[in-house]
């Protein structure tokens, strides 16, 4: 297929927030007068994602992440703007689009509470009209990679969160969707379960080139899975690009930790001024921060060697959490 897999053009979603009236008359007036305030959950969101990309979609609570995804799946109708997903306009061709996408909401299962996982999958097979042979293949792959066999015949309401999430993933992939939306797929899971889900997603993307749009609060998900991220804040895109470039732009300084064979003494302070900064000096260990636009690690090493023998060097990238926090709290931002 030509063109991008997901395209959002100036998407906007406004909600009316009803005024709540007190008292008996208030209730009666609310029945007649439906006035309220309009708020935009999503103000103006545009981006475009190509086939096979795995994109992290992040932002603080209430930024409009879920609302965007719901517009891209056809759950919500945009107030204005357009979306094209897998060649369809979600609001016009909801059913055709549904055949092309898989959705996993971490907070809410797409399975049936009272049915065994096997029955839920069987039901979905009919709904998506997956051919018998294809269904067997996909089911076997999911059973193997997501280790479903222990709980295939347990009602969904009795599954643990991690088991349920694996079930949900298997369900979302039964019909070979071209696009996978994941909304907080690792929320509430323990480290082992998180790692298992991430490995599965990475392998899936490698093998099938499925396009993935992932929202999460756990930035480790993003770091391990996505090269590209889109950051949204108060309903607007504030960054769209490579994760690494984000660090350069907002992350500022890289840290190098130098371990000398002995304490270089106060003389080390003369290092400062060469576009670097001594952050910490504790015995033989010195921590240096610098901007990678102006200086490089070998140059720091060269400068440091004037002050003694460097036994060991380690480089620390700024943590992605810090980078993003800095973005939300940055000088241009109007956050309190």
């Amino acid at each position: 297929m030509d063109g991008p897999m997901i395209e959002a053009r100036n998407l906007e979603k406004r909600f009316t927030v009803r005024r709540h009236r007190e008292g008996a008359f208030g209730a009666m007036r609310s029945l007649v007068d439906r006035g309220g305030n309009e708020v935009s959950a999503v103000k103006d969101v545009s981006f475009s994602i190509n086939r096979g990309e795995m994109v992290g979609y992040i932002g603080p609570n209430g930024a409009g992440k879920s609302t965007t995804i719901k517009m891209l799946t056809g759950i919500l109708v945009p107030s204005s703007g357009e979306a094209t997903v897998a060649g369809f306009t979600p609001r016009e061709s909801r059913k055709q689009l549904a055949q092309q996408i898989g959705v996993v909401f971490g907070q809410r299962t797409q399975l049936w509470w009272d049915l065994a996982l096997a029955d839920s999958l069987e039901l979905l097979r009919h709904m998506y009209r997956v051919p018998e042979k294809r269904f067997r293949e996909n089911l076997n792959r999911a059973r193997e990679l997501l280790v479903l066999d222990d709980f295939m015949h347990t009602p969904v309401r009795q599954l643990s969160l991690g088991q349920r999430m694996r079930g949900d993933l298997a369900a979302a992939l039964l019909h070979d969707p071209k696009i996978l939306y994941l909304d907080e797929p690792t929320i509430g899971l323990d480290i082992v379960a998180k790692a298992r889900i991430r490995e599965f997603l990475a392998a899936l993307n490698r093998e099938t080139h499925v396009t993935v749009l992932l929202t999460t609060h756990d930035l480790a998900d993003i770091e391990q899975l996505c090269r590209r991220i889109i950051v949204i804040d108060r309903g607007q895109v504030v960054y769209d690009g490579e994760l690494g470039a984000l660090r350069n732009r907002f992350g500022g300084k890289r840290h190098v930790i130098l371990d000398f064979d002995q304490d270089p003494g106060d003389a080390i302070s003369t290092l400062a001024g060469n576009n670097l900064e001594i952050v910490d000096h504790n015995g033989p260990r010195v921590r240096v921060a610098f901007d990678r636009e102006t200086t490089s690690t070998p140059r720091v090493l060269a400068l440091a060697s004037h002050h003694g023998t460097v036994r060991d060097v380690s480089i620390e990238e700024p943590a992605i959490e810090d980078v993003i926090r800095q973005m939300y709290e940055g000088p241009d931002s109007q956050h309190p």
Binding site: G74, Q99, I101, F105, R108, Q110, M127
Partner: peptide
């Protein structure tokens, strides 16, 4: 309970 979402992501009326 927000359960209606899933109805709208499926390829059926």
């Amino acid at each position: 309970e927000g359960e209606f979402d899933r109805v709208l992501i499926r390829p059926l009326s």
